[in-house]
Nucleic acid binder design. Sequence first.
DNA 1: CTGTATCCCTAACGATACTG
DNA 2: CAGTATCGTTAGGGATACAG
Lengths: 133, 133
Amino acid sequence: MSRGNTGVTAQAVHAEACPVREVLDRVAGKWSVQILVAAAHGPIRFTELERSIDGISRRMLTLTLRNLERDGLVTRTVHPTVPPKVEYELTTVARELHVTLLSLTDWAERHRVTIAESRAAYDDRHRPEPLDA
Amino acid sequence: MSRGNTGVTAQAVHAEACPVREVLDRVAGKWSVQILVAAAHGPIRFTELERSIDGISRRMLTLTLRNLERDGLVTRTVHPTVPPKVEYELTTVARELHVTLLSLTDWAERHRVTIAESRAAYDDRHRPEPLDA
DNA sequence: CTGTATCCCTAACGATACTG
DNA sequence: CAGTATCGTTAGGGATACAG
């Protein structure tokens, strides 16, 4: 995701100094978590992922999988058959993360309504213009 | 972050259908987690945050704080003094998240080396060009 | 001290057509 | 089936100057 740099960027330097961000870059991205969750139940094929993750494009599925593979979070196994069959599976490292991810989504479930209300209230307070005329 | 839409976007529709992404949007962003962590020990002032979070710009600190406030994850208290004093504090909802966040950063700490190696190995395997001549 | 307002750049993403 | 390649859009973010 950050190849092709001409030199050492401020980002890179900072990443070195900041483990916190380093993690999140791995789990952030629009689709990583959903892929991790979808693959949690065992080996899963490319098309199965594509179908089970609603709204993802082929391109993003590929890109995200490549990044996860690069970070050692998923393995990619190509079966030399015809038609081709490729299976993705979580590594043990990723499976450890999975527990935390569940904790995250659980937190979300529990508070999503509250947060939604908070948002609505905030947006209400900060409306377009007072305009009392 | 997504105001000013002219209509119901695909994103919005999807967010409604997908709680998973909904959470992460709240915690993603480049600085949210670091702010949440920095504010975990009690009320903290704007400038203190700015100093404790290395590399953050004033703009992003403000923006991220506003979003966290909007979602009800931090409270903003203005003390009408001169010079002004503003304190940010985590809400109970956010404090629950904090535990999970620690779990995340802990995971990162434990695997950061492995992941870094995985990356290096991957990049090595997928070098510029074989070019055996 | 605690922010806004601008400008600008880049990475991330989406759509779609093509391929081994 | 499992991807690339290409093109276009936009949202996130950095730098900096200004303001209550």
